[in-house]
Amino acid sequence: MKRKKSKKAQSESGVSRRDFLRGAGVAVSGSILAGEGLLHATAESPGEVRGPGETKIVLRINGKAETLTLEPRVTLLDALRNHLDMTGAKRVCDRGTCGACTVMVDGKTAYACSMLAIEAEGRDITTIEGLVPEGKLTPVMQAFVDNDAQQCGFCTPGFVMAMTALMKRNPNPTPAEVDLALSGNLCRCGTYHGQKLAAMQVAKGVAREKIA
């Protein structure tokens, strides 16, 4: 454990989230972590302690098992981007505000920047790369293209994931439901108008089983 190190860093220059997580160590017991919250789980179920050094982690991403060796403090987002070269999920705010890193964990949207890779063990992770083979588009993606719901495109994968998750649970949303479902994502170029149109295109024309 490197608790001491963490305290020292805190006194020197404040404490970063990664540093905090690293210092806290990570206790893993089956796959209970993510749902319960890290600290809660640590306190309740000591289990096996892994880290703070590199450890082997197996993630199920887009239906495929990926074996990684990384420190427990590495976020799911950084594991995807820096270790697996899966760069569809973007790093923008890096703290759970903008939604550019949105993936699906067990079918529900999640901010990959705000979940440790080790927390995601045993879960079904879907990234935008897993929605459709390269060169093809899902109906949601096609609607983004048709309605120009993207400019620079950096926020787009996150929005596509959020809208895909919405359409899978509610294939015919109202405009207000679209606004709510996409409220966890931010765009700087200002593509919301196109996104609203895109959502309506999918809502009107696509059956639930064809969403993704």
Partner: peptide, 27 residues
Amino acid sequence: ISRIDGPAKASGRARYTYDTNPPGLLF
């Protein structure tokens, strides 16, 4: 006319500087 790079962006395949990971990359 729909932007020609729309499909690459909408499918998360468009690569940005942030997404560039050449072999042996240092951070």
